[in-house]
């Protein structure tokens, strides 16, 4: 049982890795500092971060609906 749980935890590590990658995209540290270009009324850096947040929402919904946290499922 403990072995199966440990294996299950290892199998789920990639989910954590995806969240870390998305977190790095959500915070716009990578965008040029003085860029003031706009699109749809938003600064483009803001649209980039919103796109990353939306990707996080989609991934989260997918995880909830398809990835069980129970090794017996």
């Amino acid at each position: 049982m403990a072995e199966r749980q440990s294996q299950h935890r290892k199998d789920r590590r990639w989910i954590f890795a995806v969240y870390v990658a998305l977190l790095l995209l959500v915070v716009p540290w990578y965008w040029p500092a003085n860029d003031a270009s706009l699109a749809f009324g938003f600064p483009v850096w803001a649209l980039a971060t919103l796109a990353a947040v939306f990707a996080t929402s989609v991934f989260t919904a997918w995880v909830y609906l398809t990835q069980s946290d129970d090794p017996d499922d």
Partner: peptide, 16 residues
């Protein structure tokens, strides 16, 4: 699980 999946999209209709 289904409720939390729906909740993942609600920040766009509120906080934004």
């Amino acid at each position: 699980n289904r409720s939390l999946a729906i909740m993942a999209f609600l920040p766009f209709g509120t906080a934004l």
